[in-house]
């Protein structure tokens, strides 16, 4: 469950591009300024929480790979196994493992979403 794209660098570039060429309509520009404000805050949170999130993700990757007896703990291999389906009794455990990480990700992308 990596941080989704656009990455922080891609978002910063997108913001810079807009600032270099803002919309002429003050109403539209005001709307985009709000988006920039939202993205600036998101990028700050990612700077603060991103490393801990990545660490938590790696730990869950390892524990899920063990649970499913996968030959390697890679995201790609895990996704392939999940997409095959037929997880049987492992499914509730997998949800229990990954749901807290989804909450951690929301703390970066949209902390008010679960309110």
């Amino acid at each position: 469950m990596p941080i989704n794209r656009p990455t922080a660098d891609e978002l910063e570039t997108a913001i810079e591009q807009y600032r270099a060429n803002p919309d002429n309509d003050p109403k539209v520009d005001g709307y985009y300024r709000k988006i920039i404000e939202h993205l600036d805050a998101l990028l700050e949170r990612e700077e603060e929480l991103g490393k801990a999130f990545a660490k938590g993700e790696q730990a869950r990757l390892v524990s899920t790979a063990e649970l499913l007896s996968l030959p390697e703990a890679s995201l790609q291999r895990l996704c392939e196994r999940f997409a095959e389906g037929n997880l049987g009794k492992s499914l509730p455990i997998i949800i229990e493992i990954w749901l807290p990480l989804a909450k951690e990700k929301l703390k970066i992308d949209n902390p008010r979403y679960r309110e």
Binding site: M1, P2, N4, L75, C79, E80, F82, A83, L87, W98
Partner: peptide, 13 residues
């Protein structure tokens, strides 16, 4: 091209 386990999990189910 992004490997996102939750999408794969939901798809499999």
């Amino acid at each position: 091209g992004e490997s996102l386990p939750v999408f794969s999990l939901a798809y499999g189910w």
